[in-house]
Design a protein around this nucleic acid. Structure first.
Length: 817
DNA sequence: ATATACACGGATCCCCTATTTCC
DNA sequence: GGAAATAGGGGATCCGTGTA
């Protein structure tokens, strides 16, 4: 029987010594399918150069005798082939050694300590990756499949009878077909609990939201029927009803927000306390917590997606939110936040308004569901492009995604995969000296008019491609016809023959370009997502080569990349200046210059001219023309501050970089003041209104009219409290919270304000938590927040705010108020 | 362990010197 | 008068958070 199939989730299992893959997915009508398949398991043994056929034959005989005995199974060498392959671009003779069970590849590799073998590779990909590469049955693509339908079959020990699917197929043939219609169904959920510590208090309620479906389940009894709220007897029934609901709806994805870290661990802990199971999986198995640095919760046949994880990887750098809380992220991405509810009222049962608590709980699932819909196109593309199943694609870091993309593309280059670095290797890589990075131009502080901004598109990736910089193209020493890269007092050499890494990267860049253009012509979320996915991969590929955990680690390539980037940006600056423009700032891949007496048209002509002479795929682009811009001096000294500027374009939009406005470790009052001052100066070209505004805010501060909320300073705890060498205000605040019985963990954002404590010198001795009542320290906020936020901006106009304020205090200068 | 380097600025740490305190 | 305590300056270091 033939059917169409969309793979969503992959899970391995063993049967009679061999290992198999169960692929869960759907057909175009939404029927649940489990496909059972297997693939050949093998590793590579790269042979010493110049071995005679006779020696190779003897070696193969020796290898064939290897047996791996494990509890419950025995692996043997099924076959050995000899093939011409490439390894890091070099032609090699290699043995392809087939083994019974994938899990034993590692042990076989350990038994290959023959002197004829120089390297052993391909045993550390992970079975899912290995399988997808081998069989080319990729996640989120459509296949026409055929095979034996298992229905109470004896095959695989009666496996199909315990699977909650419509069809279970023992796969015979598959071929990729064009896209079919079926959009996976997602179910969002959220729990509310008595305590925040995992498993400490009871779970009060669980909400579930999907397309056209909303429900809250609770065991709290109130004397009222509420639509959409299901009342059960106790926590045990709550958990059972949750499982039943999920089973009944039979979604493809179960979606939570921070559910890897909170909801699922909590559910699992409470199920254990209530002595019940959570049979959410397709074969009624329970969610499993996989222990990594960050625990992940996996459910067989039901893809658990923790949206927070994916947002952290892909969006966080583009988000303005100070934290990645559901509330803030929803506000930014959806334009609406969480419902208000005083969780503190839980301490006093009588005050709880249960009805609004249910709504609050439901709203969290609604937001989670809508966020899911928002990120789905991106996640879909990311999974498809990197060929990682959704569970992995939504959790993998960028280095893993880049690596996965490479590994899945090696076949075309006849390349044997490089192995992961071992522990020792990682340690020594981490100790390597840092190489030089980007060039940053030191600006001259001032207020500027008529500014042009150029930037190189995908600068570093385009250099890697244009100059062929990678591990496999790197030469230890000079060879004929090699590229030479000058770096301070040494030279690095690279092959000119295109290597697979730059070739693959080139493809990524081209795809990105294509989808970006397509999106511009005919916008759709999918096209935008596709373009984004490729953009992320391109940007991360530079970092990948310098990352100590990378298979294709090559700091020399990274070093060469940045060296070339410095050379070209400096040359471009020269060029721009020599044509009558004046460069005022540059950072990494962008150049800001004054038009001086030239026109925008002339700037664009110059752009064309520069592009003509750029090598390879390197390209300079117009970022924008700006009406006004400001650059300020550093806190200490006359020098211009780098990575700090503000620009006003001809539409009246303002772009602010580096200033306190965009930093979360300044209080709101100072940030708002700074934003007003920058905006006013940029738009009006003078400081009159800005100064008046500053005076107004200072007055409000001194009259104690500023609400506490605007004075809160937020700082993150980045390591264990005892590891801090310096006792900073935020560490003191964190300790206070611990004294209050709160728990502090790495990543927590600590909020505090500076209170009035006459006599205390150190700021940390004046730290108060928001809930601690008392006066704020006027002097601190004036001299440590308001003045530093704006003094360098006014200094552009030679206005020394600090002495004016001090003078005003002494009452001998122009009174303000 | 979970992409890279460059950069700013706040706050504390720490050493040095000058001044004050104490006997 | 001399030793010990204290204050204050200033560079080094720690720390968090940006830009690219």
């Amino acid at each position: 029987m033939k059917m169409n199939f969309l793979p969503l989730d992959y899970k391995t299992f063993d049967f009679e010594r061999k290992n198999y893959m169960k692929i869960y997915g759907r057909d175009e009508k939404g029927k649940k399918i489990c496909v059972i398949d297997s693939c050949k398991n093998y590793l590579w043994a790269i042979l010493k150069e110049g071995l005679s056929d006779k020696k190779i034959k003897k070696l193969i005989e020796k290898i064939k005798k290897i047996r791996i005995k494990k509890v419950g199974r025995e692996s043997k060498i099924e076959a050995v082939e000899i093939l011409e392959k490439n390894f890091l671009e070099k032609k090699v003779k290699a043995l392809k050694i087939f083994v019974t069970n994938y899990k034993d590849l590692h042990d076989v590799a350990d038994n290959l300590g023959f002197e004829e073998i120089t390297k052993r590779r391909g045993y550390d990909l992970g079975y899912i990756t290995h399988y997808i590469i081998e069989k080319e049955i990729r996640p989120l693509r459509w296949y026409e499949i055929s095979g034996e339908i298992l229905n109470n079959s004896e095959k695989f020990g009666g496996l199909d009878s315990v699977l909650d699917v419509d069809f279970c197929v023992d796969l015979e043939h598959s071929k990729e077909i064009k896209e079919e219609k079926y959009s996976p169904m997602a179910l969002a959920f959220d729990i509310e609990t008595e305590e925040l510590k995992i498993g400490k208090g009871k779970i009060l309620m669980i909400s579930l939201v999907s397309e056209n479906f909303k429900k809250v389940i609770t065991w709290k009894k109130i004397n009222k029927k509420i639509k959409g709220v299901e009342f059960v007897e106790d926590e045990k029934e709550l958990l059972e009803s949750f499982v039943d609901s999920v089973k009944k709806l039979s979604p493809d994805f179960l979606v939570g927000y921070y559910s890897d870290g909170f909801d699922f661990p909590y559910l699992i802990a409470r199920a254990k306390i209530n002595k019940i199971k959570l049979p959410l999986g397709v074969s009624f198995n329970e969610p499993k917590i996989t222990r990594g640095r960050l625990p992940s919760v996996k459910i067989e046949g039901l893809v658990h997606i923790d949206i927070l994880r994916f947002i952290r990887i892909t969006y966080s750098q583009y988000l303005k939110s100070e934290t990645l809380s559901l509330d803030e992220v929803s506000k930014e991405l959806l334009g609406k936040g969480k419902k208000k509810f005083e969780l503190d009222s839980l301490r006093d049962e009588k005050e709880v308004s249960w009805e609004s608590f249910f709504e609050y709980n439901l709203q969290d699932s609604i937001l989670t569901f809508e966020l899911y819909k928002k990120i789905w196109p991106d996640l879909y593309e990311f999974s498809k492009v990197t060929e990682n199943p959704l569970f992995e694609a939504s959790r993998n870091g960028l280095s893993k995604s880049v690596e996965s993309y490479i590994l899945h593309n090696l076949k075309k280059f006849n390349e044997i995969p490089q192995r992961k670095p071992g522990d020792k290797e990682i340690i020594s890589r981490r100790e390597r000296e840092k190489y030089k990075g980007a060039f940053v131009f030191e600006p001259i502080p001032g207020f500027y008019k008529d500014i042009g901004m150029f930037d190189f598109t995908s600068y570093w990736p385009s250099i890697i491609v244009s100059f062929n910089l990678s591990l496999s193209t790197f030469f230890e020493k000079k060879e004929k016809n090699s590229l030479e890269v000058d770096i301070e007092n040494k030279k690095l050499y690279f092959s000119k023959k295109p290597g697979f890494f730059p070739t693959i990267l080139n493809k990524i860049i081209n795809e990105r370009k294509k989808f970006k253009e397509e999106y511009k012509k005919n916008p759709s979320p999918i096209k935008k997502a596709r373009s984004n996915a490729f953009k992320l991969l391109a940007n991360a590929s530079y970092g990948y080569q310098g990352f100590y955990g990378a298979r294709y680690y090559c700091p020399e390539a990274s070093e060469a990349t940045t060296a070339i980037s410095r050379k070209y940006i400096k040359e471009t600056i020269e060029k721009i200046n020599s044509e009558g423009f004046r460069t005022i700032y540059s950072d990494t891949d962008s150049i800001a210059f004054l038009l001086e007496s030239k026109t925008q048209k002339e700037a664009l002509l110059l752009l064309k001219k520069i592009n003509k002479n750029l090598p390879g795929i390197m390209e300079l682009d117009l970022e924008k023309f700006y009406k006004h811009g400001i650059w300020v001096s550093k806190k200490t000294g006359e020098k211009g501050a780098k990575k700090k500027y503000a620009l006003l374009d001809y539409n009246g939009d303002i772009k602010i970089r580096g200033f306190a406005v965009v930093r979360r470790d300044w209080c709101k009052l100072a940030k708002e003041l700074q934003k007003k001052v920058i905006t006013s100066i940029l738009k009006e070209g003078n400081y009159e209104n800005a100064l008046n505004y500053f005076k107004k805010i200072v007055k409000e501060l001194e009259e104690r009219k500023v609400p506490l909320e605007k004075l809160i300073i937020k700082t993150q705890i980045k390591k264990l409290l005892r590891e801090y060498k310096a006792l900073t205000p935020h560490v003191v605040a964190a300790r206070k919270k611990i004294e209050n019985g709160e728990e502090i963990s790495i990543g927590d954002l600590i909020e505090y304000y500076i209170g009035e404590f006459p006599g205390e010198k150190l700021i940390r001795d004046k730290v108060r938590l928001p809930e601690e009542k008392g006066n704020y320290d006027i002097k601190y906020y004036l001299t440590h927040q308001l003045i530093p936020a704006v003094e360098n901006i006014f200094l552009i106009f030679n206005l020394d705010i600090k002495s004016i304020v001090e003078g005003n205090k002494q009452g001998n200068l122009n009174k303000w108020f």
